[in-house]
Design a binder for these strands. Structure first.
Length: 245
DNA sequence: AAACTGAGCAACCGCTGGAAA
DNA sequence: TTTTCCAGCGGTTGCTCAGTT
């Protein structure tokens, strides 16, 4: 499941990340943000290329990232969005808080593709062989070679109704009894319900906004301070065992 | 018990588009 | 307008592990 670590001819390390490297990357990005991925490894004391750091952060270290165990609801969402957007995994990921595009892509190829193909075959069998194929089936079939339909965005929200992410998160964080701020961010719909907000009225940025922990504007001061001192308390996927903590 | 096979997933590679010079 | 640099994306690969023969 992991690639054997090695260094290329330029001394750039490749392969699986060590806990020590994770620690360095997390510490650096938490403190300074990712102002330039290409330069970051140099300053973070990592013998990695910027791309590798970015990927590691995005798919594994970023607070709030969920791995494994997709819920039925998530799977249904993926199937629906794939029918709509095709293989635009980042677009699909933007609708599934906490899931990375890479993870969704992997899950699709590993499980859902097969499952959906199977169902597709069953659907086709259900149609009279002599009949022409139902057009509606083609539209919903992600394996049909059509280019994806025009993506519908949530952009058409009246400006008077727009609510900033930080507004929501600050309110939510204040109300959270355990102070586990970023965990709550994972389920934006839950947050919306909590605040009695219609997600359809929010600006299109809501689902696509990256919760960059280095961007202080999203995070109330005392909570940011807590993240810096205790990052594990804010990451639901924090693997204390992996890091030997 | 050993060999084989396929699933699952982390990570790499190459390409593209946007921004800056 | 062109060139360069960078981030991001999607496809693919490499590796481990669990199940099967």
């Amino acid at each position: 499941m992991v690639r054997t670590p090695y260094s290329d001819k330029n001394g750039i390390k490749k392969g699986t990340w060590t806990p020590e490297e994770d620690r360095k990357l997390l510490a650096y990005v938490t403190k300074y943000g990712h102002w330039n991925w290409r330069q970051l490894p140099k300053f973070a004391d990592l013998a990695r290329c910027g791309k590798s750091c970015r990927l590691r952060w995005k798919n594994y270290l970023k607070p709030g990232i969920k791995r494994g165990n997709y819920t039925q609801e998530e799977e249904e969402t993926i199937v629906k969005l794939h029918a709509k957007f095709g293989n635009r995994w980042s677009k699909i990921a933007s609708h599934l808080p906490g899931r990375s595009d890479n993870g969704i892509k992997n899950h699709w190829h590993a499980c859902l593709k097969k499952h959906f193909q199977h169902n597709s075959v069953r659907n086709e069998k259900a149609v009279e062989p002599t009949q022409e194929k139902d057009v509606s089936l083609e539209i919903n079939d992600p394996f049909h070679n059509n280019s994806p339909s025009t993506p519908q965005t949530r952009d058409a929200s009246p400006s008077s109704q727009q609510t900033s992410v930080s507004d929501i998160l600050c309110s939510t964080a204040e109300s959270a009894s355990d102070g586990n701020y970023l965990n709550m961010v994972q389920d934006v719909d839950q947050v919306a319900n909590f605040l009695d907000i219609d997600m359809g009225l929010l600006s299109g940025d809501f689902y696509t906004t990256e919760f960059d922990v280095a961007d202080f504007s999203y995070i109330p001061g005392e909570l940011y301070a807590r993240f810096v001192s205790e990052p594990e308390c804010l990451s639901p996927v924090y693997d204390a065992q992996l890091w030997g903590l």
